[in-house]
């Protein structure tokens, strides 16, 4: 089969992960050059390498150039082998991103699989587990994917040590996505999970968030003793047709109030828009939507991630995306078979 050529110089790790998923699903080999070309440290980092290894393992494929710092990779997927897999990610790398890479592929198999992933579950710059479980998974379910992610242990950066499992059952016939109208804003809830930190920090974070987004369903969750320490502010809004989540992580040198404000303002911004899907979810829905044979959703101003992701998907699958402005900063992204 002809090897697809991909230029990674515009993209980041997500471009590589999308390519891996698509290679697993379509069995099309690819060569990616200039991997993470514009990042400060270009090439494959440890967490990307773990993704490559995992993709190779679940399909019995082969990967050439799977080395730290490598900026070129040739990947041949074999046949997806459903089963019980364990993968550990170093440097508290995101278990969620690895799950998103493997899930669509294992869902296409004819038998169920279970993934046990360890590493980080609540890292900056990656979807926290709560987002995976309550937002991402809900959207995927609408298209016909069946997966049940479970959080066994929180893992905050930089200590990691988190664990998630996910049972994946074969999806039947997938249905196109239609998420153009979110419906009415029906509920708001705020959770502040924290570990090995003073409860006062979590309380101050919650108060700050509540000032911007007052709601009833708000609480701090002291996590049982475990690896590392950390705190996150997770704000979820329920709409008639969908859900959205914003999050911010506590970090050294940043006040608890600032973290609370940050998460609340993000959600507030989304609420004032009329989009059905926030930016993070938008990026993550593109690939499943294409696999499901198409669909459409509205979102806020799409960024470069969306553009590069679309390009990768169109390289592998016979689909065509379209991004249209529909006023007030809302965009409609549609995907149709060619």
């Amino acid at each position: 089969m002809k090897t697809l050529q991909l230029d990674g110089s515009e993209g980041g790790g997500q471009m590589l992960r999308s390519a891996l998923t698509l290679a697993l699903v379509t069995s099309k080999p690819f060569r990616m050059t200039h991997i993470r070309g514009q990042r400060r440290k270009p090439g494959l980092m440890r967490q990307h390498l773990t993704c490559v290894h995992a993709a190779r393992e679940i399909s019995g494929g082969s990967a050439d150039g799977a080395e730290i710092g490598s900026n070129e990779l040739v990947f041949h997927a074999g046949t997806i082998k459903p089963g019980d897999y364990r993968f550990a990610i170093g440097t508290a790398g995101s278990t969620g991103l690895l799950l998103q890479t493997l899930l669509p592929a294992l869902a296409m198999a004819d038998k169920p699989s279970t993934l046990h992933l360890s590493g980080g579950t609540h890292n900056p710059l990656a979807p926290p587990f709560d987002f995976l479980e309550r937002i991402h998974q809900t959207a995927l379910q609408r298209m016909g994917f069946h997966a049940a992610p479970q959080l066994r242990q929180h893992g905050f950066a930089p200590a990691g040590g988190g664990e998630i499992t996910c049972a994946i059952t074969p999806s039947g016939r997938l249905a196109p996505l239609d998420l153009t109208d979110r419906g009415n804003h029906e509920s708001t809830r705020i959770r502040i999970p924290f570990r090995n930190l003073s409860a006062d920090i979590a309380k101050r974070m919650l108060q700050a968030a509540l000032k911007i987004l007052p709601c009833e369903d708000a609480r701090i969750d002291q996590l049982p003793d475990g690896p590392g320490q950390g705190v996150a502010c997770l704000i979820e809004c329920g709409f008639t047709n969908t859900r959205a989540m914003s999050c911010a992580f506590g970090e050294m040198g940043v006040s608890a109030e600032k973290v609370g404000h940050r998460a609340a303002r993000m959600m507030d911004g989304f609420l004032t828009s009329n989009a059905a899907v926030d930016l993070h979810l938008a990026d993550q829905l593109l690939l499943p939507m294409a696999l499901a044979g198409g669909g459409r959703f509205t979102t806020v101003n799409p960024d470069d991630h969306v553009t590069t992701n679309i390009r990768v998907i169109e390289t592998f699958l016979p689909v065509k995306f379209e991004v249209k402005t529909s006023g007030n900063g809302v965009h409609e992204i549609s995907c149709d078979p060619v």
Binding site: K41, M45, R46, Q47, I68, A92, P158
Partner: peptide, 8 residues
């Protein structure tokens, strides 16, 4: 030493 993302 083991927490560098580019050093395995």
């Amino acid at each position: 030493l083991f927490q560098h993302e580019d050093f395995l």
